[in-house]
């Protein structure tokens, strides 16, 4: 009973905040609704017993990706009227995209209902026996090690690519030499002139 209540609570909030994310006038509000949607999606993950995925969803999406979104959106100076002016023009493409997506989802679920493609025994261990962090670790680091490392390599390449693309040499910047700053002692920077009482100092 309580599971069903929790499911509908999370699901309704996810759908509602998804809708509000698209329709909100203020882009910062949009991002906030998106965060609420992520958070409740994590709640749905918890309900199906995938606590590891739920925590990762919050850490990665709420903690990192959405902060980045928020950053960008807060910095941008967006003209709302201009943004909404192309609505009618893009409507047919949008509707077509939605139709394709919905068609694929319906097709895939009905195929799965018909039995799916037989792949042999599922490699997953019994979820009752071991917690799902261990189950994931056992699979990722043994059976799927090369796929996992390949994914890591792709991420590394993307990381380096992002740095290379955004890094530019600028001539007009004064760089700080931190080691030099740390080595500086008071004697090098200051001098005590010991002026006699009543007289000033000439520098």
């Amino acid at each position: 009973m309580i599971q069903i209540l929790a499911f509908y609570l999370f699901a309704i909030v996810v759908v509602l905040s998804g809708v509000l994310c698209v329709t909100a006038r203020n882009p910062v509000h949009s991002v906030m609704w998106l965060i609420l949607a992520f958070f409740n999606a994590a709640g749905l993950m918890l309900l199906v017993g995938a606590e590891f995925i739920a925590m990762l969803l919050v850490i990665v999406y709420v903690g990192a990706v959405a902060v980045l979104f928020l950053f960008v959106v807060m910095m941008l100076d967006i003209d709302f009227t201009e943004m909404r002016s192309g609505f009618a023009k893009y409507l047919p493409i949008g509707v077509a995209l939605v139709a394709v997506l919905a068609g694929e989802i319906i097709f895939a679920t009905s195929a799965w209902n018909a039995g799916g493609i037989p792949l042999g025994d599922a490699p997953t261990p019994d979820p009752e026996a071991i917690p799902n962090i261990q189950a994931l670790g056992l699979l990722i680091y043994t059976r799927y090690l090369f796929i996992f490392e390949g994914a890591g390599l792709v991420l590394l390449v993307a990381l380096i690519g992002a740095i290379v693309l955004t890094h530019r040499k600028r001539g007009d910047v004064r760089h700080q030499n931190i080691a030099k700053q740390n080595q500086r002692r008071p004697e090098e920077a200051t001098v005590n002139m010991k002026p006699p009482v009543g007289q000033g100092v000439e520098l």
Partner: peptide, 25 residues
Amino acid sequence: NINVGLLYLLAISSMGVYGVILSGW
């Protein structure tokens, strides 16, 4: 006493930044 305790802490503490960002904005 959950088995993802440390991850829960990371998740919660990563949400703490929103209070600051939102108040600033």
